[in-house]
Design a protein around this nucleic acid. Structure first.
Length: 266
DNA sequence: AATGGGACCTGCGCGC
DNA sequence: TGCGCGCAGGTCCCAT
């Protein structure tokens, strides 16, 4: 999915486009994406609501509504939001008061939409770890030095640190010269500081270039991001490392493809 | 506690 | 061309 930079890009565009608009209609083409409440309640409560604010928590988009409830969108792997015409391919479309539509797109339909009175009590939100931007190098080292799992797997654990996904984890490890197989507790303070710095760097680059569109991801205008062409290791298996020219390896860690340079990352 | 596998889904590109 | 396979940005759940 959309990782933190993609979701942040969406959030910023939504703030420009849909703030203060009223929802006047809801078209649900794929019912099982609506996790709560019932489909009828979902539509009934949404229609007539005004969009008061857009919040991002980790990889979640939360749309604050005038009737003191929240539309919580988890894009999972292949979701994105597209603003404009009513799209037939959209899984869910929200009709707005300005005759435009906010379309929930999702090839694999693994995403989740919820309408709730609160979002902070959602278990996924409650257990969300801190975002990298908020951590000091010392705090980050303290967190990872307590874990024996592989560092790459740890970076993907939203309960430990939130916002990082499979692309940016690989990029940050490459930039800090750390082998994704390393046990987290084997990383010393100076390496942890470098890793945190690179995590923040790649996330900020991702935001700056509007996210990575390696596959389905689009921003709300339907355009691709610009970050995918700046990725250093993701998807570059067998190609020469940008730093040392030796071929990039690809392995599987916790069921996720993982590219790295065995020569540069120790 | 850590690890691996499968589940949830659709659709693309590849080799045969 | 058609078909089967592997793979894809996430997360949860279960067994070992």
């Amino acid at each position: 999915m959309p990782e933190l930079p993609e979701v942040e890009t969406i959030k910023r565009q939504l703030q420009r486009r849909i703030l203060n608009k009223k929802i006047v209609g809801v078209i649900v083409r794929r019912k099982n994406l609506i996790k709560e409440p019932s489909l009828a309640e979902f539509k009934k409560k949404l229609i007539g609501s005004t969009i008061d604010g857009i919040i991002r928590k980790g990889k979640l988009i939360i749309i604050a509504l005038s009737q003191k409830n929240f539309l919580i969108v988890h894009l999972r792997i292949s979701g994105w939001l597209e603003y404009g015409k009513n799209l037939d391919k959209a899984r869910v479309s929200f009709e707005l008061s300005n005759k435009k539509f906010l379309n929930y797109m999702d090839q694999r339909t693994l995403g989740e939409l919820r309408l709730r009175d609160h979002y902070k009590d959602l278990s996924f939100v409650r257990t969300l770890g801190p975002e990298p931007f908020k951590l000091s190098p010392k705090e980050f080292h303290a967190i990872i030095s307590k874990k024996k799992t592989k560092i790459k797997v740890l970076l993907l654990d939203q309960k430990v640190i939130s916002g990082i996904g499979n692309i940016y984890a690989q990029e940050a490890l490459f930039l800090s010269g750390i082998d994704p197989n390393r046990k987290a507790d084997s990383i010393n303070q100076s390496q942890a500081s470098l890793l945190l710095e690179k995590i923040i760097h790649v996330l900020n680059e991702g935001i700056k270039y509007g996210g990575s569109s390696v596959d389905t991801y689009r921003n709300i205008e339907g355009n691709k991001g610009g970050m995918e062409e700046r990725l250093k290791v993701y998807g570059r298996q067998k190609l020469p490392c940008f730093s040392c020219k030796s071929p990039i390896s690809k392995i599987s860690l916790a069921g996720r493809g993982t590219c790295f340079c065995p020569n540069c990352q120790k």
